[in-house]
Simulated scan of single mutants.
Amino acid sequence: MDATWVVLLALVLGMSMGAGLSVFIFSAVKRGEQAQKVINPTVPDGVDQILGVLESIGIVLDASDNVLKASQGALALGIVRAERIVVPDVQTIADEVRRTGEPQTRRVTLEGARSGEITRILSVRAAPLGTRYVVVLANDLTESIRLDEVRRDFIANISHELKTPIGAISVLTEAIASAVDDPVQVRRFAEKMTTEADRLAALTADIINLSKLQANQALHMPELVRIDDVIDRAIESNAVVAGARNVVIARGEPSELTVYGEDPLLTMALQNLVSNAVQYSPDKSRVGVGARLVDDVVEISVTDQGVGIPKEDHDRVFERFYRLDGARSRNTGGTGLGLAIVKHTAQNHGGDVTVWSRPGQGSTFTLKLPVATGDDHVTPIPAARLERTQI
């Protein structure tokens, strides 16, 4: 009997100790989970989804400034590395939010880490997220700032370019009024006025053409275009000017190549290249025009024997209103928009334009376009559809 009580007592004690041990282990596990949450906090619900759909740069920081979440943009621009913000100016904004408890917005300049990388300008906004977190958002303003600068420069350049012919016409009008009794002088002033009016009309036409090329979906009626026809029209339109200066325009062998695009735009671009070659070549020199197929690209080259272009200016010559020799360009009737028109025409046709040139050795401009394949039928385009095309 005594032995039975001993066994029962031992059983009760064992169950009690087991229950107590279970409670202890459960409590320890709970405390461990709570400690783990403090050490490795989780991002509030919904933040992952928001960062995933944001086009801007997004970063979430915990109480110790560890990066819990970062968008691809933050990683790509090198703002976040090894779960830390490595751009001091961005970290400073986050620190300011912790100190004040208020959202902060500033612009940050992000220098390129490697040679050749562009400097980026970011609009950074940081704000508290709950009581422990800070969210940092950034928008890349680099491209919009560049476009604003281009627009401002374009407007300033247009204003400057328009002043010359408008001012000249105004002066010539006064001169004609004062020389009304001198037919010879009136005729001379009238001819100069016509020249300035033509220059003004040319500038206006080029501005309109360039604006159309820069608009969305500039190619409204793409069709199969024969490159040989484009070359023939470009040479023909510059034949009179070239003949007056004894400049020979030599045409290469017919290529029988075709591209898809708008014939008037391609003709305008090539006419501008040939016109430039003639204008900047010395008298009694030679200009070459030809086309060839390189892989799947049609290359239309225009070569002159002019003064050449320094290497540092090769990219800039395609900028609007950029002139190597401003005085000579104006004397030849140039508007400074011809090569910009060529560049945008090439881009709208899925191609490019390049230049090879050395001072004293002339220049070669090459218009590169994807070759057309398939149907060889071409619908002729009336010449009346062409707007003014010479620069």
Results as ranks from 00 to 15, higher is better:
residue 6 V to E: 14
residue 10 A to Q: 13
residue 11 L to S: 07
residue 23 V to N: 03
residue 27 S to T: 04
residue 45 D to C: 01
residue 48 D to Q: 15
residue 57 I to Q: 12
residue 73 G to S: 09
residue 77 L to K: 05
residue 81 R to I: 00
residue 93 I to A: 03
residue 94 A to E: 08
residue 97 V to M: 02
residue 99 R to Y: 05
residue 120 R to G: 12
residue 121 I to F: 03
residue 121 I to P: 00
residue 124 V to C: 00
residue 128 P to G: 02
residue 137 L to C: 11
residue 137 L to S: 06
residue 155 I to F: 09
residue 160 H to S: 13
residue 165 P to L: 09
residue 166 I to P: 11
residue 169 I to Y: 05
residue 170 S to L: 07
residue 179 A to T: 08
residue 184 V to A: 04
residue 187 R to K: 11
residue 195 T to F: 07
residue 197 A to C: 01
residue 198 D to P: 03
residue 209 N to Y: 03
residue 212 K to E: 09
residue 221 M to K: 15
residue 226 R to Q: 13
residue 233 R to T: 11
residue 242 A to N: 07
residue 252 G to P: 09
residue 255 S to D: 03
residue 258 T to P: 00
residue 266 L to V: 02
residue 271 Q to E: 15
residue 272 N to L: 06
residue 272 N to I: 12
residue 282 P to Y: 13
residue 282 P to M: 10
residue 283 D to N: 08
residue 286 R to D: 06
residue 286 R to M: 08
residue 286 R to E: 05
residue 287 V to F: 15
residue 291 A to V: 06
residue 300 I to W: 00
residue 307 V to G: 09
residue 310 P to K: 02
residue 311 K to M: 11
residue 317 V to Q: 08
residue 319 E to P: 00
residue 323 R to C: 03
residue 341 I to T: 09
residue 348 N to P: 03
residue 352 D to M: 07
residue 352 D to H: 04
residue 355 V to Y: 04
residue 356 W to H: 06
residue 358 R to T: 14
residue 363 S to K: 11
residue 378 V to H: 13
residue 385 R to E: 07
residue 385 R to Y: 04
residue 386 L to K: 03
residue 386 L to H: 10
